[in-house]
C-alpha cells in the first residue's frame, strides 16, 4: 500500500520504525523530541499527560500510545501543538500547589523544565488551591500530594519494576489522588524503600527522598545543565522480566 514500508515522517524528517513501536518509540530512537511527562521508556505507556499529542492527517493522537504505521505523516513541533502543550502544562501548575522557589526539587523538576522549554511565563488559569494530604510517615520518603501531577509513573514503576504495587490513583475528576496500598493508607506501612524505582522516578516534588534535598546546589542541578529535550532522549529503565 505504502511507498515507505517501514518509515514514518515526523515534521520534515523521515525515520525508520520496527513493528510494535509507537510513534514515541520511533521518535526517541531517531533523536526526535516529542514533549512528554508521563512517559518513561522501559515502562508501559499510559497516555495521561497528553503533552505528546501529535497530529496525523486530521486526527490528534498521543504519540506514546499510538502505534507507528508505515507512511504516517506526523506533525509534532508546530506552533499550535506547542501552544496546546503550554496550556496543558499551565493546567498542571494550577491544579496542584506548586511552590518552585521553595521546592527542593527545583532544578531537577520535569514540570518546571517543561515550562521553561515551552516558554511558559505565567499560570494563565486561576489557581485551584486544593487541599491535598501530605504523608510524612515513612522515615526516609516524603509524599506530598500537593505537588503530584497524577502522571502514574510511580504506580507503574512500583508495579512493573519494583514489583511491590505500592501506589494507585483513586477518585474521579479533580478529586483524583495518589493512594498507598497499605492498610492504613500510609507510606510507612507499605513495603516502599528508597532504592525502589518508584521512589526515584517522580518527575516533580511529590515523592522526595528525605535528608538529601540540597546536596546538589542550585545552579548545578539537572536542568541547570541540560534542557528537558536533551535528558528525555537519554532516559531508559529495564523492566523486570521474570514471568
Amino acid at each position: 500500500m505504502s511507498d515507505h514500508p517501514s518509515t514514518i515522517r515526523i515534521d520534515d524528517q523521515e525515520i525508520p520504525f520496527t513493528a510494535g513501536q509507537t510513534i514515541m518509540d520511533a521518535a526517541l530512537a531517531a533523536g526526535i523530541y516529542i514533549p512528554h511527562l508521563c512517559h518513561y521508556p522501559g515502562l508501559p505507556p499510559s497516555g495521561n499527560c497528553r503533552l505528546c499529542v501529535v497530529e496525523t492527517g486530521n486526527r490528534s493522537a498521543a504519540a506514546c500510545i499510538t502505534p507507528a504505521i508505515a507512511g504516517q505523516e506526523i506533525r509534532n513541533n508546530t506552533p499550535e501543538l506547542n501552544e496546546a502543550r503550554k496550556a496543558i502544562t499551565q493546567m498542571l501548575f494550577v491544579e496542584g500547589n506548586h511552590i518552585c522557589p521553595s521546592c527542593e526539587k527545583t532544578g531537577n523538576c520535569k514540570l518546571q523544565a517543561m515550562a521553561y522549554h515551552l516558554g511558559m511565563l505565567d499560570d494563565h488559569f486561576p489557581q485551584f488551591y486544593q487541599r491535598r494530604e501530605l504523608d510524612a510517615s515513612h522515615p526516609k520518603i516524603l509524599l506530598d500530594r500537593s505537588r503530584c501531577i497524577l502522571c502514574d509513573l510511580c504506580v507503574r514503576a512500583s508495579r512493573d519494576v519494583d514489583q511491590k504495587n505500592v501506589f494507585a490513583i483513586a477518585g474521579r475528576g479533580t478529586d483524583a489522588h495518589l493512594i498507598v496500598n497499605s492498610p492504613s493508607g500510609k507510606l510507612a506501612d507499605s513495603t516502599m524503600a528508597v532504592t525502589d524505582l518508584a521512589a526515584n522516578i517522580c518527575p516533580v516534588g511529590a515523592i522526595l527522598i528525605k535528608e538529601q534535598g540540597y546536596q546538589v546546589p542550585i545552579g548545578q542541578r539537572i536542568y541547570d545543565r541540560q534542557t528537558i529535550r536533551e535528558t528525555s532522549l537519554q532516559e531508559h529503565v529495564e523492566p523486570k522480566n521474570d514471568d
Binding site: 497516555g47 495521561n48 499527560c49 497528553r50 503533552l51 496543558i88 493546567m91 498542571l92 494550577v94 491544579e95 488559569f125 486561576p126 485551584f128 501531577i149 497524577l150 490513583i169 477518585g171 474521579r172 475528576g173 479533580t174 478529586d175 483524583a176
Partner: peptide, 21 residues
C-alpha cells in the same frame, strides 16, 4: 462533565473544571 470526568487525562480532568468555573 466536571463531575463525570474520570480524572485520567490532564485536558479533561482540569479543563472541564476550568470550563465550569
Amino acid at each position: 462533565f466536571a463531575h463525570e470526568s474520570c480524572g485520567f487525562c490532564t485536558p479533561c480532568r482540569i479543563g472541564t473544571q476550568l470550563l465550569k468555573n
